[in-house]
C-alpha cells in the first residue's frame, strides 16, 4: 500500500518534501540463477505503466540484474537463501528499487564498490557490478552487516514523457 503521502522529508530537513508513492511491488524468491531473468522481466512489466524510454528500461533492468546476481553469487554462495525485491514508484516518476538478502554481508562496502574489485575471480566475476549499478541510477546506497545481509537501494527519476 502506498505509504508516504507527500510528507516532509524528515530525514533531510530543508529538502523539498518527497513526492508521494503511487505504486509498489514486492517480490521474494529463492536465490536460483534462473530468477535473474525473472526479476528483470517482472521489473519491465511493472515499469510499463510509466512508459519509460527503451534506454531507461534496459539500464534499470541491467542494474537490477547486477544486484540480484550479487545475492545469488556472493550473499548465498554456499546455498540457497531468499532474495527480496521491492520497487516503488513516486508521483514525480522516481523509481526506487531495493534488493535485500540475509546472506554473508560485506565487510568493507567502500572497497567492494571499487571498480574491478571482486572476491570471486574464479567464478569469472568482473568486479564491475557496483559500477554498473551506480552508472545506471541517480543514486546507489549499499547497507551491509557481515553475517546478517545486504540491502542495495537504487533510485532513478525517469524523464517526463510527452502527453499525446
Amino acid at each position: 500500500m502506498p505509504r508516504t503521502k507527500g510528507k516532509n522529508n524528515s530525514r533531510h530537513p530543508g529538502r523539498p518534501p518527497l513526492s508521494p508513492v503511487t505504486n509498489e511491488l514486492k517480490l521474494s524468491f529463492p536465490s536460483l540463477s534462473v530468477n535473474e531473468g525473472f526479476a528483470r522481466a517482472a521489473l519491465g512489466a511493472f515499469l510499463a505503466q510509466l512508459d519509460p524510454t527503451p534506454t531507461e528500461l534496459v539500464d534499470l533492468k541491467c542494474a537490477l540484474s547486477e544486484a540480484v546476481t550479487n545475492c545469488i553469487v556472493h550473499a548465498y554462495s554456499d546455498g540457497i537463501g531468499t532474495v527480496k525485491l521491492s520497487v516503488s514508484l513516486r508521483a514525480d516518476r522516481t523509481v526506487i528499487i531495493e534488493v535485500r538478502d540475509l546472506g554473508r554481508g560485506i565487510p568493507d562496502v567502500a572497497q567492494a564498490r571499487e571498480p574491478l574489485y571482486t572476491t570471486d575471480a574464479a567464478g569469472e566475476r568482473s568486479g564491475m557490478g557496483f559500477t554498473v549499478m551506480e552508472s545506471f541510477s541517480d543514486k546507489l546506497s549499499v547497507v551491509s552487516k557481515p553475517g546478517h545481509g545486504t540491502t542495495v537501494k537504487m533510485i532513478k527519476r525517469l524523464s517526463e514523457r510527452k502527453k499525446l
Binding site: K61, C62, S65, E66, E124, R125, S126, M128, G129, V132
Partner: peptide, 13 residues
C-alpha cells in the same frame, strides 16, 4: 539483446 557485467566476466575469461 541484453548483457550485464557477467558478459564482461565471460569475455575476460
Amino acid at each position: 539483446e541484453f548483457m550485464d557485467s557477467s558478459g564482461l566476466g565471460f569475455i575476460m575469461g
